[in-house]
Design a protein around this nucleic acid. Structure first.
Length: 281
DNA sequence: TGCCAGGCCTTCC
DNA sequence: GGAAGGCATGGC
């Protein structure tokens, strides 16, 4: 297909795809290539425009819009959070255009179960391996790609087979969660209307999902931007900036974020996370 | 060799 | 309810 050209505002493709919220994108030359739900996407940015190619043309604009949240008024959001305090203002200046994605719910659940006590390259490797072994193959520009498998496609996969994907001790967590979904003990459809608090509680009932993983799922696949996932990096940056390097509990950090960052806490968290990891702050 | 990674589960108090 | 220990695996 020919390249689709789309105008963007307050959007940075590199920050959005490299900030650690997603695990299936690879950079090649000046573009990124990855899988969104049921299609392979090749995408690059040049100034105020993004250029998109895919193996599947229908509703491509809608898919891109939804995944990258292009309809969100990020100018207003960034304008708002730049006034929070001097640290947020600085972080935002460094990584303006970083957006929270709207990724597939099931894929995000499994990916973030794998993320526990893990590092980003290894998470990517495991997610890729699960897709390669159990997902549908797609040919794009003469190369093979694999969609992330559906719960149905994983219904007969054993704990041992997950282990072979390099997920380590998380094998049984994935197995149990897939089982719960396939047995309809946890419903993954029509989650848009469920209140954040209730959805979070529901996610926490799944094996391998604790507070941090639940918040990542809510933020990176459900657009609940008020949640504030606290991992080792966020803990580190929050202690450094707001607690004078003191050893405070996660509870205290969360209270501070909720009080001072309000409904944009998740967006601010992304900037702080990316800034501390890239040694920008 | 030992420590760390987008933490969670289990056990014990 | 909170603290401590265990956990797979690869990179540094």
């Amino acid at each position: 297909m020919k390249e689709l050209k789309m105008k963007v505002k307050c959007f940075n493709l590199k920050y959005t795809l490299e900030c650690g919220q997603c695990f299936r994108w690879k950079k090649e030359d000046d573009y990124y290539i990855g899988v969104i739900k049921d299609r392979v996407i090749k995408i690059r940015q040049d100034g105020d425009y993004i250029y998109v190619e895919s193996n599947k043309e229908e509703e491509i604009k809608e898919a891109i819009n939804k995944y990258f949240g292009l309809d969100n008024d990020y100018e207003a959001i960034e304008n708002r959070i730049s006034k929070v305090d001097k640290y947020v203002e600085k972080a935002l200046k460094n990584t303006s255009g970083l957006r929270h994605l709207n990724q597939d719910f099931f894929e995000t659940i499994i990916s973030y179960i794998i993320s526990a006590n893990n590092n980003i390259p290894r998470i990517s490797k495991s997610v890729e391996e699960i897709s390669r072994r159990f997902g549908q193959k797609v040919i794009f520009n003469d190369k093979e790609y694999y969609l992330f498998p559906t719960p149905e496609q994983l219904k007969d996969v054993s704990i041992e087979e997950y282990r072979k994907c390099g997920v380590g001790f998380r094998d049984k967590y994935i197995f149990n969660t897939v089982k719960a979904i396939n047995e309809k003990k946890f419903v993954i459809d029509n989650i848009e209307d469920i209140e954040t608090k209730e959805l979070r509680k529901s996610l926490l009932s799944l094996m391998g999902i604790g507070p941090k993983v639940a918040d990542c799922i809510l933020l990176f696949s459900c657009s609940r931007q008020e949640v504030f996932p606290i991992d080792v990096w966020v803990e580190r940056v929050m202690k450094k900036l707001y607690f004078n390097g003191e050893d405070v509990s996660k509870k205290e950090i969360l209270e501070y974020a909720t009080k001072n960052f309000g409904n944009d806490a998740g967006i601010i968290q992304q900037h702080l996370f990316y800034n501390i990891r890239e040694k920008l702050i």
